[in-house]
Design a protein around this nucleic acid. Structure first.
Lengths: 215, 215, 215, 215
DNA sequence: GATGAATGAGCGTTCATTCAT
DNA sequence: TATGAATGAACGCTCATTCAT
């Protein structure tokens, strides 16, 4: 299943431009991205880009919003079928891991955005983010109320989950290309959604479960 | 008291320029930083900057290397006095939290760098990074050998620790400025090295300890 | 009631576009005018504008010609009923003053055009201009032949009449908006066709009449 | 005596750029002028232009101010030696005519500026303008108080004097190049400061003098 | 007759970098 | 060692114009 993040309201041209812009902003960041390059890679004239979407900031805002609202939607849907808080937490972690693998532009976009202090962060996207955090918060609260999770700062757990997944994913190029890294690290999985996600699930659960199943 | 990261071999002018450059690169990223601004904020002529250090890339490389080698050194020193693996892990987390609070430029610099896939990552800095990862790897191995830690993928734990701390720290401006965030999140501590670091220690230990101390 | 300067041969759409174009060219000049703005203010698509009239230069040429031929016609008609040269001169001045008040786009269009050295001046419009100058020339010649006017350079008198009227009218925004101007000037009439035109008549007549009526 | 309008405070490069800018703005107007062309004709890089002076607006403002303050100074100096109001008025007209002939950029600059309603008119320049108007106002007042001039609206006389001179000068290219104009007009003097200025002097004086010397 | 979409060329501006002093 | 001045190359954006429908 390919990710379809671009709104259907947009014309085909606009959707295509936004898809390319997502790539370029992910690769180069806002300041590093070149409107020329986005237009060229989208196969359209620069003026068309302005006609269809607007200036660089508008382009960026729309990309960020698309990515985050998509993530929020997937996160919410992921825990729908799960019953217990424990199961919900597992599903949530797996969902984020899968989202990251399927939308490889998300980690760099997110990281650059937070690194910049949200300088270009559109208010719309902030709401998406709050929604994502909210999902996990509810799961953790429910687990604590039911006596299976210890008391935690949900936002911190969220940073932990997001942090590992995103950072692990982002580390791929550096640990692969830099000769200084040892073989053991170099040959770690390039995807997060498989065995790595399972280990993360286990670690997070061990961290928050009152009774940890000893192995 | 701020940490002194700039090498003493450099002239005073050069050190000062590098200190300013660290701020500017942290605030704006490599592409967003302006050589003009660095020179202006350093109170020197642009030509002086080129004479003393070199071009923008050289400036950036030196900043990154200074920051990372400093972090590596602090990380290594942190666990020196600790005896048990558990204690070492605690010290390590606390050390990173403190480093982050005292060097607020580190998180944005690191995150942008990994987000870019290490495009401008100097080989020197990669060695610093490997060293930092190595510290934690050894602690985790020792703990596992001594039977107190479960078996883990040390690199993943490293991503976890770094991920939480750095992401938590970086989230401050966004969660503070964006009205969409709930009060509960807005009023969380702006520093990591206090209560937050303690909770992180606890969570990480619960995740890796074979026998978790029940509360 | 505004003067209807646009030819009837044109479709209603074209006439409307030309009317709007007259405004925009008057406000912004040829180089400053935007085809987009003309189309928008006319409520038509840009392509329609090109279909109906042609490119920017064609649009401009037609506007200039309309304005000048209108002025020429009004000038000629103004002196029709007058008998003596003196009366004709009075009527002529009054006619130009009225034309200027009723067609506020004329002064800026004319002035920018002469300021540019007639770079975009269509030959048609030049003929209109010659006709306007011709009217006054005849009056002055007649007056001189009849012994009531001194000998003059008619073209210079024409520049004088046009100069005062047009410059006076054009000075309104500057002398009104710029705080540096004294109150006495600020509160001068914004129209030329009333008391101001009368004073101009008087001054011009005093300048060219052999026998000036002492007051 | 060549006109030295550019301030001595400026570097030679800046003065040269401003001199060229004066030409280009006079030829093309603000909107029509191209920064590229100014730089090219000045023989400097575009970036130098921004380094030395600033953006297009700043460039324009400085040009306008230079031209007007120069005119104001010359106007004031012109009537210094004259004794009677009549003589002062003559000198004033002659001074403006000479200024216009020696600074051929002034008429187009002025006319375009008033035609635009002073859209880009710098406040500094407005003060220069008020000063110029003030000179003539004083002469006319003095003449009226001494009983030699009739009562007039000084600002209107100013528009008249400026109007003829500037319009006459500006009409040169059109009346020369457009075939529609009759020979009599084509062969009129291209300068204002000779016989034309004398005729203007005569006309203006006849207009305002109580007792006109009959010829 | 009218329009949404597209475009090449160019615009004003800024960038990192160099050079003469 | 330090700087004011200069620059080529780009950058984000807008322009007048065209074309398929």
């Amino acid at each position: 299943m390919t990710t379809m993040t671009i709104k259907e309201k947009r014309t085909e041209t606009a959707s295509h431009i936004l898809e390319v812009a997502k790539d370029v902003f992910a690769e180069q960041g806002f300041a590093g991205a070149r409107v020329d390059e986005i237009a060229r890679r989208a196969g359209v004239n620069k003026a068309t880009l302005y006609y269809q979407i607007g200036d660089k900031k508008a382009l960026y805002a729309e990309v960020i919003h698309n990515v985050l609202s998509n993530a929020a939607e997937l996160g919410a849907r992921a825990i729908e079928k799960a019953q217990t808080p424990e199961e919900k937490l597992r599903c949530y972690v797996r969902s984020i891991a899968r989202t990251v693998d399927e939308n490889p532009q998300m980690p760099p976009l997110m990281m650059r955005e937070v690194a910049s202090g949200g300088k270009n962060f559109p208010a719309e996207a902030a709401r998406d983010l709050v929604q994502i955090v909210g999902i996990l918060t509810n799961v953790l609260k429910e687990g604590h109320e039911k006596g299976v999770f210890i008391e935690t700062t949900p936002f911190l757990i969220h940073m932990m989950v997001m942090g590992v997944i995103v950072l692990y994913k982002l580390s791929v190029p550096i640990r692969t290309n830099q000769p200084a890294f040892p073989e053991a690290i170099k040959k770690l999985d390039k995807n997060v959604s498989g065995a790595i996600a399972e280990e993360i699930e286990k670690l997070i659960l061990r961290a928050v479960l009152k009774e940890v199943p000893r192995e």
